[in-house]
Every structure is written in structure tokens, then in C-alpha cells.
Design a protein around this nucleic acid. Structure first.
Lengths: 193, 193
DNA sequence: GCTTCTATCTTTACACTGTAAAGTTTGAGG
DNA sequence: CCTCAAACTTTACAGTGTAAAGATAGAAGC
């Protein structure tokens, strides 16, 4: 490894992003601080400022990386699903939900309104590619009569809300104690012929 | 008013909660601090500690208050809707979405996983009552064949995801620029006879 | 080979945050 | 009138983001 204990770290930027993801996994979003990731990477606390424009910049970079693994989750889950359109759609959603479960804090971050994005193309590109994965799968079905993107928004809202509320129910327990599967609430769409 | 400029404020607890909601409206969740609400209420920065168990306690109290106005939004929106079950359901959802739009930061707070709830009955009661408003309206329809609470969870996930993604699209703009209405993605349920 | 220069990182400093502990005031009860 | 307890203040401390100035090392030019 490029373990130079000198002044120049070598590839500090990705190291800081990795450290950030590490903190997210271990202690959650609220525990993520510039000084902590700097300490993990073995540099001074002010070093991150030269690679990211403040804390928000680090969050943007981590979020972009998060979106990329988010995409991977959906694509891999779709790949192992059956060939039928409905199976592929459910596969995407299961990937969505698996990501939310496996990367709790990262999921919180990438959809957090706290990260102010001012034309960060790296983030918006990754986010729109993530939406594209879902849109492509929705294109296998007849479009919604009410709106050209009706199916996308319906499925996207449904799975996102489901994931978010499942997180919420860890804090405020639901009234019912019968666990519900996502496939129970996903409507059947009519495949395109 | 009970404007005593002495040592004892009189009713500091609700004043701090109001100050917190005021900050949320003006500057957002990230700008909410104990010291700031204390300053607004005109007390020393450590005063809140005697009424709430730390910052999380204040957040819990604000969130409980937030859930109560959240309930009011849904009930009032249902009241002005038509008598048909589907109209009432759509009314609830519009109240849901109006609240999310009018009280952006408060909406973020009440569904934030950062507020750690350790058997705070005030919050859980309000939250479960909010869910009850939606459940009551869903009871007007035939139950989902797949799960007794299938309709509730479907509608709840749908509207919550829609609200969240609308917030998200303020940061990352959507690929399509044709605005979509919630009524376009809400499925028609079959009313109970 | 030597100098210069620039990106990278460090040091120092400051305002702000939450929290704990000890001190002060005020109003109520004996 | 005295005591006392609740409400609030004061003081202190560790942690945070950020800005500015200083140090270092590798590259670029000659």
C-alpha cells in the first residue's frame, strides 16, 4: 500500500470518502464529522478542506458513491430475478429495499435534503442514473393513462415510502404487528406486448 | 401576557417549543440549536436542560407537536373533500402533502430517524393517531386480499414516498419536467358496500 | 544540479454547539 | 419568619466547521 507517513498522503480524497462511509456504517449520519474522518485517514483535521468544499462537499461525494452502490444493488437484484417484467420490477424494488436495510445511514444521506447541491454533476448524474434503472424496468409495461411517467413515480414513491416507513417504525412501532411484505402492496402492471 | 423579566419565566417549556418551531420555519432543521431557542425565549442557554432531557428531548416535544398539526391537516383536508370514499382518501393524502409542503423542516423532523425515542408516549401516541386517521379512511374500502393492513401500508407508502421525493427533487431535479399530480398515481380502491 | 513554484497538508485560531456541575433567585409551605 | 425545592444562571469543557497562515515535498523549468 501507499503508506507514506509523510506530508503527502497520496490519494487522500478517496481515503476520506471511505472513512466517511465507514463512520456512517458504524455510528450513523449524525456522528459523521470532518475531524473524525480526517483522524481515521491519519491526517490533520483541516486536510479535508482542500479536497472538498467544506463538509457539504464531503457529503456530496459520499452521496454520489452511495448512489453508485445503490444502482448496483438494484441491477444485481434485477439480474437474479425471473425474466417476466413483473418479476424484474419486484427485483428492482427488493434491491432498493435491501440497500436501505444494509446501508441505513447511507440511504438516509443520499435522500437527505441537508446536502445542498449546487450543480454537482457527479451526484446528479448518479442519482438520475439510479432513477433510470427503475424507469427502464417500468418501460416494460404499458404506460400509465394519466401521465407518461405515472408508473415510474408510482413505483418509486411506493418503494421509497415503504423503505422510509420501515425505518420510521424502528423508532415508533406500528399499531399492527403483522409484518408486511413489499410484494403485498405492489400493484400488478400490465406488460407491454 | 406573563412577561416577567425575572428569574422565573413562567411557562418556558411551551415557549421553547414555539421558538423551536419558529427556527424550523425560518432556517430549517440543521439550524435548530438549544442555545438559539433559549435566546429567542430570552433565557440562558442552559435553561432548556431543565425542561427537556437534552436536545433530543426538545426534538421529541417539537415532533409531537408537529404530529398534532399533521393530524389537523389531514382531518381538515378530508372534511372539505366529497363524501365518496375515494374523495376522502384523496383528501387525506392532499392534507398529507400540504403539510409536507407548508412545514418542510417539521415534516423532516417528525420522520427523522435521528430523534431517538425511548418510550416517549407523547410522541408515539400522536404518531399512531396520525396513522389512525389514514387507517380509518382506508376502512371504507374492501381490505386488501394479501394483507389485512395492505391498503393502509400501500397508501401510506405511496403518499409518503411522493412527498419525500418531491422534496428530493428540489435538490436533484427530475429527468422529466412534466409535473405530476398525486391523483395520477393513487390507485382506485373498491369501496366497501 | 539547482532553484522556484505549487499543490498538499499542518498549525493556529475562532465562533458555535451540547452537556455537566455548581451557584443564585424566586415563590411556596411549614 | 424560616426552610426548601424548583427554575434559571454562571461557568466550564470537549467537540464541531471553517478560515488564515505556515510548512513540506514533489514537480517544473533552467
Amino acid at each position: 500500500m501507499a503508506e507514506k507517513n509523510q506530508h503527502h498522503h497520496g490519494n487522500l480524497r478517496p481515503a476520506l470518502i471511505d472513512a466517511g462511509i465507514e463512520v456512517l456504517k458504524a455510528e450513523g449520519l449524525s456522528a459523521l464529522s470532518l475531524r473524525k474522518v480526517a483522524a481515521i485517514a491519519g491526517v490533520s483535521h483541516a486536510a479535508p478542506a482542500h479536497h472538498f468544499d467544506g463538509k457539504n462537499g464531503l457529503l456530496l461525494a459520499i452521496a454520489a458513491e452511495g448512489f453508485r452502490t445503490f444502482i448496483r444493488y438494484m441491477e444485481e437484484s434485477r439480474a437474479v430475478a425471473g425474466p417476466a417484467p413483473q418479476a424484474k420490477l419486484l427485483g428492482i424494488c427488493h434491491g432498493y429495499l435491501s440497500f436501505a436495510k444494509d446501508h441505513d445511514a447511507l440511504f438516509q444521506l443520499i435522500f437527505s435534503p441537508d446536502i445542498k447541491n449546487n450543480t454537482d454533476t457527479e451526484l446528479t448524474d448518479a442519482a438520475q442514473r439510479a432513477f433510470g434503472v427503475l424507469a427502464d424496468t417500468c418501460a416494460l409495461f404499458e404506460p400509465s393513462p394519466s401521465h407518461p411517467q405515472g408508473n415510474e413515480m408510482m413505483v418509486w414513491s411506493l418503494v421509497h415510502g415503504f423503505a422510509t416507513l420501515r425505518r420510521f417504525h424502528q423508532t415508533v412501532p406500528p399499531t399492527s404487528n403483522q409484518p408486511i411484505q413489499f410484494s403485498d402492496i405492489l400493484p400488478r402492471l400490465t406488460p407491454r406486448k
